[in-house]
Amino acid sequence: MMAYTKRIDGRDFKELRPMEAKVGVIPRADGSAYFKIGGTAAYAAVYGPRTSFPRFLQNPKSGVLRCTYTMMPFSGAGDRVRPGPNRRSKEISMVTEKALIPVLDLEDFPNSVIDVFISLPETDAGSRCAGITAAALALADAGIPMKDFVSAVALGRVDDKLVVDLCYDEEAYEGGPVADIPIAMTQRSKEITLLQMDGEISKKDLLKLVELAKDATDKIHEKQVSALKEKFLREGFKNDN
């Protein structure tokens, strides 16, 4: 069997796909963002902190972060995605919450909920990571105090190579073993807030990929920061709350 010598889309093994980031794309929301990486695009809208309903969700000691991940019905490479929650989207919503909570001070918002809605118009692998990256941007745009920033990317292994930001054709590679590892990281402290994996990999390679994730999330973070700066240059610093 031939080794994986050249990436399917021609990138270097450590190269991210082209990125696009914008904030303030959903004017009704308290904060919003669009993040696109290759063929995967995510919108995120933040509402809140607002009083949480149903009431049993209210916690007098702390606020609640509630993330909802949705693929738009026409966003998948195959058949139409049926609207409404499913096992996959519920799990992704949950790990997205866990990926973002470490940088928030939810104790500052007792009895409240911060809703983050993530919705993807097109997907080509790495959709939970694009969603987390967009969500972090939207939280910043909403003015929610954050102790650190979060950026996310999928890394992995395709046959004998370690790769950054897998596309769908790499996830589905049949010429050798594949590992797909979504990682979310805090920007300054480089702590891992999301770690999942499908496939097979050695401990040595896993640790190498965590190291590579630091560089990759740095590049994503640069994009996030320039999107925030771009909005403030465009609209000035509005204090309309």
Partner: peptide
């Protein structure tokens, strides 16, 4: 789909 992202 009237996504809750579109309006409070």
């Amino acid at each position: 789909e009237l996504s809750p992202m579109a309006s409070p």
